[in-house]
Design a protein around this nucleic acid. Sequence first.
DNA 1: CGTTGTGTTGACAACAGTCAAACATGGTGG
DNA 2: CCACCATGTTTGACTGTTGTCAACACAACG
Lengths: 242, 242
Amino acid sequence: MVVQMRDSITAIGPCGTCAQCLHCEARSRSICSVIDPEHMSLLDQYSHRLVITSGKTFIQEGEAASDFFIVTSGHAKLFALMPDGRRQITGFAQSGNFLGLASGATYAFSAEALGPLSLCRFSRTGLSTLRREFPKLENRLMEEASCELVQAQKSMLLLGRKTARERLASFLLEQHQRSLTKARVTQLPMSRTDIADYLGLTIETVSRTLNALQREKLISIAQVTQITLNDLPALEILARGG
Amino acid sequence: MVVQMRDSITAIGPCGTCAQCLHCEARSRSICSVIDPEHMSLLDQYSHRLVITSGKTFIQEGEAASDFFIVTSGHAKLFALMPDGRRQITGFAQSGNFLGLASGATYAFSAEALGPLSLCRFSRTGLSTLRREFPKLENRLMEEASCELVQAQKSMLLLGRKTARERLASFLLEQHQRSLTKARVTQLPMSRTDIADYLGLTIETVSRTLNALQREKLISIAQVTQITLNDLPALEILARGG
DNA sequence: CGTTGTGTTGACAACAGTCAAACATGGTGG
DNA sequence: CCACCATGTTTGACTGTTGTCAACACAACG
């Protein structure tokens, strides 16, 4: 089985013997794609599967960055805290995303599970070994780091220069794109508080702005976490600011 | 060998053995450090020196990302623009910094010279060749990408959650650290407009806040671009928000 | 049913933005 | 050398978007 991915990387699908498990499914999207099938067992030597319960903080800012993670199912939020409790969510991670690229000796952020979460964990030393063994892995890591940097720059523009309306429109479109569905209904895995902390707003402003967009027929809020994007072109114009 | 490019961008060819030139000086900090001396000539095959005049935009958001740069002297600003002219500066680059890590097929940002600027340019294909040739280069690139991601996360916290006072304090400390001097006098290479666009504020707020900090004796503004940090501990407390 | 957590709505306040004018600074040409 | 202009910075008065505080609605759950 061969799957065409993103630009030009040809990925080899669900690996080895357990074709179904999420572990392998997400690994195939992020790591297995660059490792020959006959070496999969070597990969297994260096990775371990983890299951995290909802709300659990599994990466703590400031602690020694000994591990590297790949999300295999569920969602996580990455965030930084200030001493007085102010919080900035710097990103959300879902199946296939890497966690721990942005680290020196210690983690530069904390990470918490948004609902049940499955992870694939690599020790940094193990990952180094894998990188020496599979040079293509380097490309994959760089590619992912580049994407995260581009995403971070978009967030900086959003946080520094966009209005509350523009931020919400950008956020909804981003979530919609992530879901990879053509349906205009988006299921949000995070709370209003998380949205606020991601967009640099308060929960009240998020709530008010979302309802304003609904009054203007740009979106429909069926349930709190289920939003329909009624007018994609208008939302896109709003998101980019004209 | 000197080649005239575009309007004012001058390319100067490989510099061979010259140990003094800025080209090599900065390369030694960023690339040469991972390449054996006897292979330096190979490096020269793939890199070219550029001189950029002040104010020139040498990377344009959206254009094909064909090159990769290393700053060898001077300063540059990286930024994103909105259709109505709102601008967010996502970072500043100085000697030794890489430009172009955050790119897919096209550049995700624009870059402009803050004063006279020297660059070392690598074609992306040339860089790929170098990466295959010198595996240590991979580590250097990943390390740099990690640093940029950590820096980006700090900027997101600043833009999303810090007050104007906290932003200015953070900014001044960051500039001070970058200068690598122990002296408490910092020479700013950028204008008030650039500071405002970096911190997500207006020039008026930057000016007012800076003067407020001066009234409180935390800093002294000798000339517009020359600021003395009188009370580092207090500035650090302010910057991290208590 | 109360209780708790989460989200919504309203009244008001405040921080930062907008507009405008005065003030430096630095380069240019008479 | 100095008047002049262009550009960048500072200061002031006022406005507005978003934040704060508080009350209320609603669903989930024991």
